[in-house]
Computed example of a mutant assay.
Amino acid sequence: MADALEPRQLNTYFALMEAVSLLQHAVTQQLRAEGDLSYVQFELLARLADSDGQLTMTELADGVVYSRSGLTHQAGLLEKAGLVTRGPSAEDQRATVVGITEAGRELVAKVLPGHVEVVRRLLVAPLSTSDLDALGGIMTRVRDHMRAEPPRSATARRKSTRSEPEPL
């Protein structure tokens, strides 16, 4: 069994997770109220709006750190709502390209001011400029460390063990 986290490590972990949960809850409420969007749907639309307007499903899955099946479902809901389009890639027929529609851009523009206000009020307001710089540096380093692992889209799927006999 691995050694337990030290109290300082455990306190930092729980403080981070609680802060992320509180921020995500507030952002989710704002997105639902102002745009009838889930957080993942907003992330997809915002990434598409910030890109050249089109990304592959793999690029989106890696960017939003979401399962392929979950992303396919969310993209389908957004497509049905007229916020994105999906189709085969011109470069690779195996890849699906997702594009944002004008309605999708308009919805991002509608919910973005409220989103920024929530983030500013809950995350930015209690921090000094040096705190913000330090937190940004720390979280960038942690994110980059985590992203050094192979992307989830490149991870081999686990084989089902249902039909394998149980070990003796």
Rank of each mutant, 00 (worst) to 15 (best):
L123R: 02
V124T: 10
T56K: 03
L10P: 03
L23E: 00
S38G: 14
L48W: 06
V40S: 05
N11S: 11
Q74R: 15
L31M: 05
A33T: 09
G82E: 11
A109D: 11
R47N: 12
G99A: 11
R147P: 00
A4K: 08
L44C: 03
E34C: 00
L55T: 01
S130E: 15
E166D: 14
A33F: 03
T96V: 15
V84P: 07
T129H: 06
L37W: 04
G70Q: 04
S21P: 00
L127G: 09
L16H: 13
D92L: 03
A2Y: 01
G70T: 08
V124G: 05
R157P: 02
S69G: 13
A61P: 07
L122W: 09
F42H: 10
L168Y: 00
M1F: 02
L123E: 02
I100G: 00
M139F: 15
V119K: 08
T129N: 05
G63N: 11
G99H: 06
V119W: 12
T140Q: 10
P165K: 03
L78F: 10
Q93H: 14
A134R: 09
E91G: 11
P113I: 03
D133W: 07
S69C: 04
L78C: 08
G99P: 12
T161G: 06
G137D: 06
Q93L: 13
G76T: 04
G82F: 07
R158H: 06
Q9I: 09
M17H: 11
G114Q: 10
S38H: 12
S128A: 02
S21H: 01
D36K: 06
M1A: 04
A103Q: 14
E106Y: 04
S51I: 13
H25E: 08
S89Q: 10
L127Y: 12
A46T: 01
P150T: 07
T28E: 12
E149W: 08
A134Y: 07
L23V: 04
M1V: 04
M146N: 12
S38I: 11
I138Q: 02
R141C: 05
A95I: 15
Q24I: 02
